[in-house]
Amino acid sequence: MLFGVLTSPAWASSKCQPPFERLQDEFCIHVKVTAPPEGSGLPLKWAEARAECVKLGGDLAVVGRTEKLQAISYYIDKSLPAWASKFIFWAGGQRIGSGPWTWTNGRPVSLKSHVWTPSRPEKTTDNRYTMVVPVDEVYNRRYLLDYREDQAAPAFICEK
């Protein structure tokens, strides 16, 4: 029993290593902008963004819960106030061909979750990947959309 107390998730994961920051005392994220509005840098495809997260010791973020997406949205608004409403961010959902949607951690993506923009994801058989987009400025909320693998985004969200 003592061993279980010493290795509990709260004790073992109370800190995040830079560049990751702790949110909701549950997870560590890092939001990376690769193509800021002033023109320096290039947008990345999903696989490139994922490779960058892996280099940092994480992976693209799993944002399957509304509360987590709202916490990440608030963090983006606070840390990137001038660009937050204009940027789209790669996240960790993927579907290869007509296979099931999965997160980068291997768990299934709920297609009935309220994190999706209505009428999404598209019902196609090409590879699709999730992006966090600013859809609803009235409620200061972001949603997930699905994009093709040849599309690029100026930013991505890593999780560790």
Score class of each variant (00 low, 15 high):
25 D>E: 14
29 I>M: 14
29 I>C: 11
30 H>E: 15
31 V>M: 07
31 V>C: 10
33 V>R: 03
33 V>S: 05
35 A>E: 03
36 P>Q: 09
39 G>W: 02
39 G>N: 03
42 L>T: 08
43 P>E: 00
44 L>A: 10
44 L>M: 13
45 K>R: 15
45 K>C: 11
46 W>K: 11
48 E>R: 11
48 E>L: 13
49 A>C: 14
50 R>Y: 09
50 R>V: 08
52 E>R: 12
52 E>A: 15
52 E>V: 12
56 L>R: 13
60 L>C: 04
62 V>Y: 01
64 G>M: 06
64 G>Q: 09
65 R>L: 14
65 R>Q: 15
67 E>T: 13
69 L>S: 15
70 Q>P: 02
70 Q>W: 08
71 A>F: 02
72 I>F: 04
73 S>I: 05
76 I>W: 03
78 K>F: 02
78 K>E: 11
79 S>F: 00
80 L>A: 12
81 P>G: 08
81 P>V: 13
83 W>S: 14
83 W>D: 15
84 A>S: 14
84 A>Y: 10
85 S>P: 05
85 S>L: 07
86 K>L: 09
86 K>S: 12
87 F>P: 00
89 F>W: 05
90 W>M: 03
92 G>Y: 00
94 Q>G: 08
94 Q>T: 12
95 R>A: 09
95 R>Q: 11
95 R>E: 06
96 I>T: 00
97 G>D: 03
98 S>T: 09
98 S>A: 07
103 W>P: 05
104 T>W: 05
104 T>Y: 02
106 G>Q: 07
106 G>N: 13
106 G>D: 13
107 R>H: 10
107 R>K: 08
108 P>R: 01
108 P>Y: 02
111 L>D: 03
112 K>V: 08
112 K>H: 06
112 K>Q: 12
113 S>Q: 12
114 H>V: 02
115 V>P: 04
115 V>T: 00
115 V>A: 00
117 T>D: 12
117 T>I: 03
119 S>K: 09
120 R>D: 15
121 P>W: 04
121 P>G: 10
123 K>Q: 12
124 T>K: 04
127 N>F: 04
128 R>M: 13
129 Y>M: 02
129 Y>D: 06
132 V>W: 01
132 V>D: 02
132 V>F: 09
134 P>H: 14
134 P>M: 10
137 E>M: 15
138 V>M: 10
140 N>S: 11
140 N>Q: 11
142 R>I: 01
143 Y>F: 07
143 Y>R: 06
144 L>K: 01
147 Y>A: 05
149 E>M: 07
149 E>P: 00
152 A>T: 15
152 A>C: 12
153 A>R: 02
154 P>E: 00
